[in-house]
Design a binder for these strands. Sequence first.
DNA 1: GGGCTAATCCCCG
DNA 2: CGGGGATTAGCCC
Length: 567
Amino acid sequence: MNFGSLFDNTPGGGSTGARLLSGLSYGNHTASTNVLPGGALAQAASLFSPPLTNKSVYASSGLSLALEQPERGTNRGEASMMRNNNVGGGDNFDGSVNRRSREEEHESRSGSDNVEGISGEDQDAADKPPRKKRYHRHTPQQIQELESMFKECPHPDEKQRLELSKRLCLETRQVKFWFQNRRTQMKTQLERHENALLRQENDKLRAENMSIREAMRNPTCTSCGGPAMLGDISLEEHHLRIENARLKDELDRVCNLTGKFLGHHHHHYNSSLELAVGNNNGGNFAFPPDFGGGACLPPPQQSGINGIDQKSVLLELALTAMDELVKLAQSEEPLWVKSLDGERDELNQDEYMRTFSTTKPTGLATEASRTSGMVIINSLALVETLMDSNRWMEMFPCNVARATTTDVISGGMAGTINGALQLMNAELQVLSPLVPVRNVNFLRFCKQHAEGVWAVVDVSIDPVRENSGGSPVIRRLPSGCVVQDMSNGYSKVTWVEHAEYDENQIHQLYRPLLRSGLGFGSQRWLATLQRQCECLAVLMSSNVTSNDNTSITPGGRKSMLKLAQRM
DNA sequence: GGGCTAATCCCCG
DNA sequence: CGGGGATTAGCCC
């Protein structure tokens, strides 16, 4: 290698000639050489974010050639420090001096010379590839200064860049490029960091999801610690009851047969299984008209359904409704479509019928909406409130005019409320003269699906047409809420309201209310719940006593305090 | 091959 | 004209 190679325009990556030639484009300044200062290196590196490590930036011996820096009067004494250190020892082998000095030439040259150098190259050989990039790195000192400047100001103005370029013996263009690239690098680093965080979060959520799924598949009872999935147990219990009924049936027949021989008489029990299955239309189960509304269930002798089978049927109805509610709460499009105002989801009836293999009853209109939101209450407190007719009334004073529990079919499992099933009668209202109070009989069933995840489902047991009394008949198809504890004292509540009604019996003024979801829709229930719970939370956090003389009525205050104390 | 960096190209305000 | 995105060229590991 000699200086002749400076004019060797042989193209080709890694060719010294090409590199030197392109290097020439930076000018012809010569100066004594400097070597890498280890101290400066570490110092510079410490300014960098992770990817800019010593290794990646400085540690290669090849790089050390490019990193050499001409000593200039403007270097403010840094040069002397630089001279005392050597990284990679690259300046001691043969030819390195020449190469170095030539690198320096383009390093130290500033301004338009560089551009002209490139254009000169192009002029010299117009037929060869248009541009050939020289390999070049700024020196640690330059980078250090650039970095410290960058720390202060990632967007230096022209004056600052000019000052920097003078101080660092770089072209203003180079300073500009450097800052541009540094900003880009910063951005990608930031993105990478964000990606890592998101990935981490994603992994966490995935794991959480898995454990929740696992918990739902094989949960343990919170009170006894044993394996206890309510649904499974209830189903198992249900199957056992059916089996039991079948065996009783068989026994009865046998007894009857023997009785014929022995002259005794035994009552014959009908199995209600076929009745239950036959009438269960995706949760749209219709009980005989005389079934609901009464304070007690008809005795087996009257209805032909024995007590165990009644419960079994109701339980099956409740479980079916619960499944439907959970599916409704969890599904997204196409089953649900966002309402125009985005406040709630509206049920896609076609998709609903497909999903639950049901058909739309003729002459009946259906309305279904879903709303989700955070409520400052824990899931168990909410569930207990819902399962207690009085507390339910207190919690939803505007929505529930009257409520009674007409029959408790199951008080819950193992001393908990989990699995509680009851028949209820309520008068629901909208507090509008346009909308008459409506009376509904329904089953209310609550079930814990996982730790901190509960659901309460209501389902009417009245057939829509056979309700008497002249009040508008609206039957609730599986409706209710799924509630999940959050870590911050709030719960996420997803409220589903699904009703079926005879349009002819609904006052025309009321129809738009139903259609808009404002009537008895999920929005209204959730909004009431949120408001009440916020009030109660405030009440609890302040030291309000029952003697506190405030503007609320004594009854209201008592009721609120009672609610608050329970929470 | 991919990462890093200096530099280029090109679009947009 | 400058900034920023996309891209390239050259080098390193």
